[in-house]
Design a protein around this nucleic acid. Structure first.
Lengths: 196, 196
DNA sequence: ATAATTACATACGCGGCGTATGTTGAAGAG
DNA sequence: CTCTTCAACATACGCCGCGTATGTAATTAT
């Protein structure tokens, strides 16, 4: 075995990220004790501080991982659609649905921004914004979407989506609320489409 | 002086809310030490626990106060507009601008949701959502806005606004970004307007 | 082979939160 | 008017969690 060392290190990092992700996603960032969830991974806080600097550093790594997964899912969805507009709409709806998952909601839309500031602002994890922006750019090039600032549109849609998800998740009847939200969302997007 | 007692109590409550608001709005909820900011108000943590139960209780009171102020401002703005549609747009733009104020941004859009969950969900402080909903309801009745679920529209617009504010506040050039955001936002709203 | 660095674990102190326990002064009963 | 009671705070205590400083074993470099 030439380099089991690096593998062990990567494994340790992965274990810490997984443990943190689990804890952050369930009890939340503030209530997650580093002693507890590192012990759960068979490690100590020493390892965490060594690899990630501090608790926020680990959160950052967790967010980066989740963002990558979300971006991948979004890209697959838009690629599978019959045309660009439908792909775009499907992408937005999927974004809402992802935001319904408790782990994503808690880490990406709640604790993340609260602890690290606006997460989508950093260079490392703007994957979802970037994915939305690319779709919008293409739609504008195709003449399907009217004249609107690309990044502004991406941000606004992103905000509307995440808030819609919060609304749905907190409602008494998530199923019904989800239908209302998605319907309203489609109407909103339709308003951006060039009429033909 | 008939009842200086109740006045003293109300004053104490107001002092605590003011001190908490100041601390939460500047250093943030998590970093705000109850010992510190209560001492700054000439009180102790004992008074805080007596009146508000715990730290979250105080945050709740602070949020309620700010929400009332924001609602008042929104209502005045929409009332001063020449027609309902312009009033609605002005209301939305004002909402973005309010969300730019550091105190509002920090307390209402960051720490509030992170600590208490979706703030707009509670009965006590959905003032801004309610204000938006009323405007939308009237526009629909006037035939100016198309068929869209009122609450869904209010939520989506609310989400887009607050996210836009975050984007602006964090950008390198807030002035320029603000122009882009507001312009994009107007375009988005225009898509909801019935064409005539 | 020894030195130096990496990858963790252990130990310590500090600050903050929540609670349990005073203490004071005002309102109500007789 | 006095005594009781209770509200409105202040004080005191213990626990937990974070960050850092330090220790240690294993790997790499020379």
């Amino acid at each position: 075995m030439r380099k089991p060392r690096e593998e062990m290190i990567a494994e340790t990092r992965a274990k810490l990220i997984a443990a943190g992700r689990q804890a952050f996603g369930t009890v939340g960032y503030a209530a997650a004790s580093m002693d507890d969830f590192t012990a759960g991974a068979g490690l100590t806080r020493g390892a965490l501080y060594h690899h990630f600097g501090d608790k926020k550093g680990l959160l950052q790594a967790v967010i980066q991982q989740i963002d990558a997964e979300m971006t991948l899912r979004l890209n697959r969805i838009s690629a599978a659609a019959p045309d660009r507009w439908q792909g775009f709409v499907a992408e937005c709806v999927a974004y809402i649905e992802m935001a319904l998952e408790p782990e994503i909601q808690r880490i990406m839309f709640r604790d993340g921004p609260a602890v690290l500031g606006d997460v989508s602002q950093w260079p490392t994890n703007n994957g979802c914004i970037a994915a939305l922006s690319r779709s919008i750019e293409q739609l504008k090039a195709d003449g399907v979407m009217g004249d609107i600032d690309t990044e502004a549109a991406a941000r606004l849609i992103n905000g509307a989506s995440s808030h819609a998800a919060l609304w749905i998740a907190k409602s008494d009847d998530p199923e019904e609320t989800s239908r209302r939200a998605v319907k309203g969302f489609r109407t909103l997007l339709e308003g951006l489409r060039v009429k033909g």
